[in-house]
Amino acid sequence: MIDEQLPLGRPGARHTVLVVEDDSSIRTLLTSALTAAGYAVASAGSGQEAMFEAGSRRPDLIVLDVMLPDTDGFHVIRELRAQGVYTPVLFLTARTGVEDRIIGLSSGGDDYVTKPFHVQEILLRIRAILRRSDTPPSAGSARPPLRYADLTLDESSHEVHRAGRPVKLSPTEFRLLACLLTQPERVLEKAEILQQVWQYGFSGDTRIVDTYVKNLRRKIDQEPPALIHTVRGVGYCLRLPRDESLTAP
């Protein structure tokens, strides 16, 4: 059911959202709600159609159902990421198991909503994702690259390098790494990371932080020394191993 408080788009910003859902009634509901909220909307009912629309429309965000008639949403996002497409993805899933959510996030998803859902929640999540992934620096205000040890993150060019090796990150992974890099050697609690990176609380579920840190560690810490560390029972921090901390540049 569509709420009267529906419009939750960004005034003056005409973002395009691709809705991938094989259930025609849900697809129509989301298309109508997003259009009313001020978004341009494209839609697809299968994984194959989703790949075509993502390539031709270049949407700003994809709302992606996990269960599709010809494949699943996890495969679709893996294919997109393999092709260098890092469009933010909001998963829709009837699967409530933690393992399925972790698979979706590990595949490169930025958020998830379980069915049945409230349209207002979808709009809030979309607005939050776009706000954190679509805020280019204004002219003349580009910040210098963030550096720690042999890790560099350039916010103006959206590039990351570790020991000279380019590292490809999704928008959310990029924001997570920037969060850690702006506060090196400080232990950040999971709730604090949620607030800084996701800007809302995921219903208090901090497991999304664990999943994204695992993804980030796999990409950043391919070579020693490991930089992303777990402080058990507290959170995470970016630092050199204790016996190497004195060699940090």
Score class of each variant (00 low, 15 high):
214 K>R: 14
123 L>K: 09
162 R>Q: 04
54 A>H: 10
113 V>H: 09
131 R>I: 10
102 I>S: 04
22 D>H: 10
183 Q>M: 03
217 R>L: 01
206 T>A: 07
207 R>E: 08
124 L>Q: 13
224 P>A: 04
219 K>D: 01
55 G>C: 10
104 G>M: 08
45 G>Q: 08
185 E>M: 10
237 C>Q: 12
122 I>S: 05
223 E>T: 11
206 T>N: 11
47 G>C: 08
107 S>R: 05
1 M>T: 13
230 T>N: 13
128 A>W: 06
181 L>M: 15
134 D>V: 05
74 F>V: 15
216 L>Y: 01
24 S>Q: 14
145 P>L: 11
238 L>T: 02
68 L>I: 08
174 F>S: 01
165 R>V: 12
146 L>V: 04
3 D>L: 12
221 D>H: 03
75 H>F: 12
227 L>H: 03
246 L>C: 00
98 V>L: 07
22 D>Y: 04
37 A>V: 06
179 C>K: 01
86 Y>N: 03
136 P>W: 08
140 G>Y: 08
161 H>T: 13
170 S>E: 13
174 F>T: 00
68 L>N: 09
151 L>S: 06
183 Q>T: 08
14 R>M: 06
1 M>A: 14
230 T>W: 02
26 I>P: 01
10 R>Y: 03
234 V>R: 14
191 A>K: 15
226 A>Q: 11
79 E>A: 15
165 R>F: 06
40 A>R: 15
225 P>F: 02
19 V>A: 07
77 I>K: 08
137 P>T: 10
208 I>A: 05
92 L>W: 01
71 T>F: 07
37 A>H: 06
27 R>A: 13
76 V>E: 13
72 D>G: 09
21 E>H: 05
49 E>I: 04
231 V>H: 08
234 V>A: 06
20 V>H: 05
246 L>D: 10
235 G>T: 05
142 A>W: 03
69 P>A: 07
121 E>W: 01
21 E>Y: 09
16 T>G: 07
84 G>H: 02
53 E>K: 15
20 V>T: 04
32 S>K: 14
69 P>M: 08
224 P>K: 02
73 G>D: 09
112 Y>Q: 12
7 P>H: 13
207 R>G: 07
138 S>I: 12
199 Q>N: 05
179 C>E: 03
134 D>G: 07
152 T>Y: 01
148 Y>F: 14
227 L>W: 06
91 F>Y: 11
111 D>P: 09
238 L>I: 04
213 V>R: 02
107 S>M: 10
